[in-house]
């Protein structure tokens, strides 16, 4: 949510961008993921060595690359929302396309990362860490898939004669949430020592 209110200027003060029902989803999703994260942190504290051993098998470089890609996609979507508000529809559509392309790139890198982990196998003792790794990143990729679907709907909306900026904002709100969730997952799985 910080990403959304920070990146997209709302124009008028005191207005929440996008539909209220989407914000219900965003806040609830953050709440549910907080439960997942709390559970992870708790379990990690029980056997820090084994989690650290698993963590060291992840490539931080890949994590950073994926973070940059998602942040860039968020920027594109935010610029798209801005262009849609300014009724600059062609530009908006182009930015949304770029944002979606970054999302696809993110998933391709994730798939490659998963496959290398599965082929290499997991050393004894790191199973718990990798179970969390696959569940968290898997759930996140599911959110990315849903986000791509939403971006396609936004793109279609932008082909209409008079697209509703509200619809574009709602899609943008969701996409920024996907980005924010990834940053939390990245920090927890790749960075926390």
């Amino acid at each position: 949510m910080a990403a959304d209110s920070g990146v997209v200027p709302t124009g008028r003060a005191g207005r929440v961008p996008g539909e209220g029902s989407m914000w219900f989803f965003v806040l609830g999703d953050f709440w549910i993921f907080s439960c997942y994260f709390a559970c992870y942190v708790h379990d990690r504290a029980q056997s820090p060595e084994s989690y650290l051993a698993g963590q060291q098998l992840l490539s931080q470089g890949t994590g950073v690359l994926n973070t940059i890609i998602l942040l860039t996609s968020s920027l594109f979507v935010a610029l798209g929302v801005q262009a849609a508000r300014a009724s600059d529809i062609d530009v908006a559509r182009r930015f949304v396309t770029l944002g979606g392309a970054c999302g696809i790139l993110f998933m391709l890198i994730k798939a490659w990362e998963w496959s290398t982990k599965i082929i290499a196998g997991f050393p004894a003792g790191t199973e718990d860490f990798f179970l969390y790794y696959f569940m968290f990143t898997g759930l996140h990729v599911l959110h990315v898939c849903l986000g791509l679907l939403i971006l396609v709907l936004v793109w279609r909306e932008l082909r209409k004669d008079r697209p509703r900026p509200m619809f574009v904002e709602t899609g943008g709100t969701y996409w920024h949430m996907v980005d924010a969730l990834w940053i939390a997952i990245f920090a927890l799985l790749y960075l926390v020592r």
Partner: peptide, 21 residues
């Protein structure tokens, strides 16, 4: 049905996925 119920339903779906392990 209100849209937020649709979003709530997506969470219910996600919790089923979390039970895969």
């Amino acid at each position: 049905f209100p849209k937020w119920l649709g979003y709530l339903t997506i969470w219910a779906l996600v919790t089923e996925i979390v039970a895969v392990p």
